[in-house]
Design a protein around this nucleic acid. Structure first.
Lengths: 249, 249
DNA sequence: TCGGGTTTCCGCCTACTAGTCGATAACTGC
DNA sequence: GCAGTTATCGACTAGTAGGCGGAAACCCGA
């Protein structure tokens, strides 16, 4: 059983909270939403971060997010908050990840956070505010609060869902070649992926289908690649699990 | 390639966002924690519910839970709340499930809820308060608020985690026969489970091991059953997924 | 137009796993 | 000892992922 805090303690906390809220031009709130928006670019997985210019942890990099509004659902709120940093119409997927409520996760105020995983297709190049950038997920900068842990959770979630859902649709452009597809999976999974095998698995699961068209060959020649697309561009769970393993030694 | 959004478009977006933020006066939403505690008894999966005697939805059945304390983490809070309904020392597993924040999920106050999945081993018979009972998960009574959805999420989580983790340890007594083990899995998964196959899978994964002892035969005779135990009684993720399928037709 | 270089695609092979089933072992009770 | 019962073990089957080599389809230079 946890004891109720002393009144004095409580008031001090409330005062500090007020100050912080004033600084941010927002009233006191206890709940925030965050999103780790992931995106494959230049062959590796990136995450969307913005650099804090004010408040605690200024200078560090943070996930997009903010306080929950009065009449907002969690989903609606994260969409609204994300709109500040990126064109939400570019988002191909969004799902809830986890909530964190350690009392000391942020200095000053007590804030419970609900984190989301967001995905942006590989061909999208949304315009970003000046304080916001894509960071390679393997070289994260100094992160604010507990946001690094959220990024790690997002990466894990993506990795496993690629194995037993059609979540790949959210990583790739509407139409793609098999080599490109393998490249996206390689970046997201963090290990090598055999194109032949990937094709067989996804075709068998009826996740992807050929469009019938083919891309012209590159400058060096080579057989022109056939184009594919995902049949369904919304999350579906495969009845049979199938893990994409790293290659055998 | 997607075209970059026009600058004007971007500004319009930002303006819209300002308006939205102003409209959504931020308020201190209350936060509660809930747990769907599952338990296999008499061959079927049950969930722990208590009947509301006061307030909204009185008479309906609810999950254990309550408001988050000032200096409590979410995990600490759900443990404290659960202690009101069941001896928490009987809990073999507890993990976070999902958070719900629809503004109208409870009448009156705005309450964001973080739900947990709890498990109690099959041999435990914890004492319960008079308002609290185990309910078969297939015959839920009239449920309060959105608690029925939470129960469904918990069941799904259990089902899938049995396939790619050692979560079975949390369902069974410290020591068990293979028939008993198959019975627990059958109840939790909701479909038939072949004991031979289950044994091979779990032994191969090094999840279970024979204790060397054997149970005396029952009244009708029969070969005495060997006893097994889980090697590790804490959650571990199997590197290779392996789904326990329903039997083939 | 022919041949070398390049990339993609396709079919075959292998290893391994889950699911099934029947035979055998180890008991009880008559 | 024999019939009945339950548990255990081993062998068989079907299906899947991973890997590899060769054929296909293109470019380009001679």
């Amino acid at each position: 059983m946890s004891r109720p805090p002393h009144a004095a303690e409580h008031e001090a906390l409330a005062a500090e909270h007020e100050a912080l809220a004033a600084e941010h031009e927002v009233l006191a709130a206890e709940h925030e939403v965050l999103a780790a928006v992931l995106h494959v670019r230049e062959g590796s997985l990136h995450v969307l971060l913005w650099q804090r210019a004010l408040g605690p942890d200024r200078g560090r990099w943070a996930l997009p997010g903010g306080r929950l509004g009065e009449a907002e659902s969690l989903d609606a709120s994260i969409r609204r908050q994300l709109a500040e940093k990126v064109d939400v119409r570019e988002l191909s997927h969004l799902e809830q990840l986890e909530s964190r409520g350690e009392p000391a996760r942020m200095p000053g105020a007590r804030v419970v956070a609900t984190a989301y995983l967001g995905l942006v297709p590989g061909d999208a190049r949304p315009q970003l505010p000046t304080d916001t950038r894509w960071h390679p997920i393997d070289e994260l900068p100094e992160m604010a609060f507990d946001h690094a842990a959220v990024v790690e959770a997002a990466r894990q979630r993506l990795r496993s869902k690629l194995s037993y859902t059609n979540l790949g649709f959210a990583l790739v452009p509407p139409v793609f070649t098999l080599s490109e597809l393998a490249g996206y999976y390689r970046a997201a999974l963090g290990h090598d992926v055999d194109g032949t095998n990937l094709q067989r698995i996804l075709v068998r699961r009826e996740q992807i289908e050929p469009t019938g068209e083919r891309l012209p060959s590159g400058p060096g020649g080579g057989r022109p690649a056939a184009l594919f697309r995902f049949r369904v561009r919304a999350l579906q769970v495969t009845d049979e699990f199938a893990v994409l393993h790293p290659p055998r030694p």
